[in-house]
Each structure stands twice: as structure tokens, then as C-alpha cells.
Amino acid sequence: MNKDANALNWFEIPVTDMQRAKNFYDKVFDINIAVDNMMGMEMGFLPFEDGNGKVSGALVKSDMHKPSMDGALVYLNANPDIQKVVDRVESAGGKVVMPKTLINEQVGYMAFFTDTEGNKMGLHASS
């Protein structure tokens, strides 16, 4: 790994029902996920800009992707206001498992939720 590069360059969130997962993440983050098929997998791409060095990922449905409450935990960007994102989780069909919590003044806030597919996910924001 190059010490000057992002440690994370791509992530995949396993799903069993792409439309349900797309609806959930679209509503919670106020976005529109584009769905496509690639290499035998159904993929819902989270927003990104080509060539800017920022990390992105996708919702993925395949035989190799199984939703889980265990394992690696991905923190999604909830800026500029994490509470607005947390407030949309349950109305979208998820469950808040840890409310907005201060890490410290320099790092900001975090929260945990479960999505409609059974994944535990993290949120992070400066406020």
C-alpha cells in the first residue's frame, strides 16, 4: 500500500434484494443509485466523481455477497449533518443501533445502523 494513497479504494455492501436496498440507501442519503449488471453481479453504484481520488462503492447482489452484522464495518459519509441521516434510517426500513455519538471535537461524530438487508453500517460526520 502506498503511504500517500487512500487506504480504502472501493467497498461493496452485500444485498439480497437490490430494489429494496436501493430504495433504503436512496432515501437515507437523499441520492439516486444507478443499478447495472457487471460480471454476473447486480450492482448499485453509490455517487462518485471520476478521477478525483475519492473512494466510492456499490450495493452488490451475487452468490459471493452475503449481508452480515459481523465482519468489517464500513463508515459512510453523513456530512454535513449526521443527525439528518440518522433520522431517515428507520423511516426507510432500517434500525438505528447506536445514535449520534461524539468521538471527540477534532474527529466528529459516529452512529451505527442496520440496513434493510441485515448489514451493520457506520456513519461518520464532522457535525
Rank of each mutant, 00 (worst) to 15 (best):
F48P: 06
K84I: 00
N6H: 10
D87A: 07
V28F: 03
S68P: 06
D87Q: 03
T114D: 14
N79G: 05
V60H: 06
S127K: 15
K95Y: 09
T101W: 05
I82W: 01
L123C: 09
G94P: 09
N119C: 11
G93V: 07
S91R: 11
A34Y: 10
K84A: 04
I33R: 07
K22E: 13
N2K: 08
S62M: 10
G51Q: 05
D26R: 04
I103F: 02
G122M: 03
L59A: 05
R88Y: 03
G40W: 03
E117Q: 12
P80D: 15
V60Y: 07
F113S: 01
M1S: 15
T16V: 15
T101V: 11
W10L: 02
N32F: 06
R20E: 15
F24K: 08
V15A: 12
P47S: 05
M98K: 10
N2Q: 09
R20S: 14
I103K: 05
K95Q: 15
F29I: 02
K100A: 07
P99G: 11
V96R: 04
G57E: 04
S62E: 08
K22Q: 15
N79H: 07
N52G: 12
A125L: 06
S91V: 14
K54W: 01
E42L: 11
P14Q: 12
K54C: 04
N37G: 04
P67S: 10
L102A: 11
D17W: 01
G53I: 06
E105T: 12
N104E: 05
K27H: 04
G44F: 09
D4H: 09
F112I: 08
M1P: 12
L73I: 13
S127V: 14
P67R: 10
P67T: 13
P67K: 07
K3A: 15
